[in-house]
Structures are given as structure tokens and as C-alpha cells.
Design a protein around this nucleic acid. Structure first.
Length: 153
DNA sequence: CGCGCGATTGTA
DNA sequence: ACAATCGCGCGT
């Protein structure tokens, strides 16, 4: 079953943690989400993040990588969850750049409505046993906020 | 209008 | 430890 707008509309940290073990679907690919990070505030470069929850937010970084996020909370809040790890069968994609490169996700897929889109969305997956919370990777500020969540194992 | 940096990754 | 590589935000 596809995740609802109410799911994404909650606090971004709760959404991030609850996305672990959910199933990411892109075209013919399906994989379980194993690692995420929560983001919020005026930091991002895109306006998509400030729109309604449940939309994709794909940004281009370091001149060569794309990162896939899902917009959370109410419109205007500017919060999103970065998908950092996915397991497709026996293939582990550990890193936001690797996920998008492997699946072929680019900024062409920015701003898709994941509540209704036929190519990119998230469904219920497999419940996870234990969750680890750590500081986020690749940013120096707010190290006291444990907004990165990983499935143990 | 030009400059420098960034939610990354692979190689040395 | 660092290069690859480019769009955007900010400063001039």
C-alpha cells in the first residue's frame, strides 16, 4: 500500500525514522529503505521543499551527483527526508549519489507527486527490528541533532 | 556578472 | 587526503 499524504505531513524527524524499512519504487525497481536523514529550514536551494508533503525533491550536488528527498510536514515548512541507503535484493546502495546513479534518478524526477505518480513512490515494506540514530553526514552544524537513522545490520 | 562552495564518491 | 565538476546564492 502506498504511503499517504498524512504520513508525509507529520514532523520530519518522525517521518524519517518511519521511512526505514519502507519500499522505494522507481519504474521497475523496488528496494527497502535502510538509511535516511531529516532536513528542515532555509538551508536548501530548492523551493519544492516548501511545497506540500509527499512530493519528490531531487537536487544536483558537487557537479556530478543527484540526491533523492521526500517533502514532509505542512506546505511552507520547508522540510524533507534525504534517502541515503536502499537495499534492492542483494544489492546495497549506501549513499544518496549511488542510489540515484543506479536507478537513473535525475532532476527530471524533481517535483513528482509520490502520492499519485506511476514511476516514483514509496509503499509499505518490511518492519525493521532496530534503528540507530546518529548526527547527519556531510554537514558540520547541528551535530547534536541525531537526525540520521540507519537500520542496524 | 563573477566567484566559491556544497545534504558525494572514488581513487591515491 | 583530494580531485572531479556545475548550479546556485551571494557579493561586487
Amino acid at each position: 500500500m502506498r504511503l499517504t499524504q498524512d504520513f508525509y505531513g507529520r514532523g520530519v524527524v518522525d517521518v524519517a525514522r518511519d521511512l526505514l524499512g519502507k519500499q522505494l519504487v522507481f519504474q521497475a525497481n523496488k528496494g527497502l529503505i535502510t538509511e535516511v536523514e531529516a532536513y528542515g529550514g532555509p538551508t536548501p536551494r530548492s523551493a519544492i521543499m516548501f511545497g506540500p508533503p509527499g512530493f519528490s525533491y531531487v537536487y544536483f550536488i558537487y557537479g556530478m551527483y543527484h540526491c533523492l528527498n521526500v517533502v514532509c510536514e505542512e506546505q511552507g515548512q520547508g522540510a524533507a527526508v534525504l534517502i541515503r541507503g536502499v537495499r534492492l535484493g542483494d544489492v546495497y546502495l549506501d549513499g544518496p549519489g549511488k542510489i540515484c546513479r543506479h536507478l537513473g534518478i535525475t532532476r527530471d524526477h524533481n517535483g513528482l507527486n509520490m502520492l499519485t505518480d506511476q514511476t516514483l513512490y514509496i509503499t509499505e515494506g518490511k518492519p525493521v527490528s532496530k534503528i540507530l540514530a546518529t548526527p547527519r553526514i556531510g554537514i558540520s552544524r547541528a551535530q547534536d541533532r541525531l537526525w540520521r537513522f540507519v537500520v542496524e545490520g
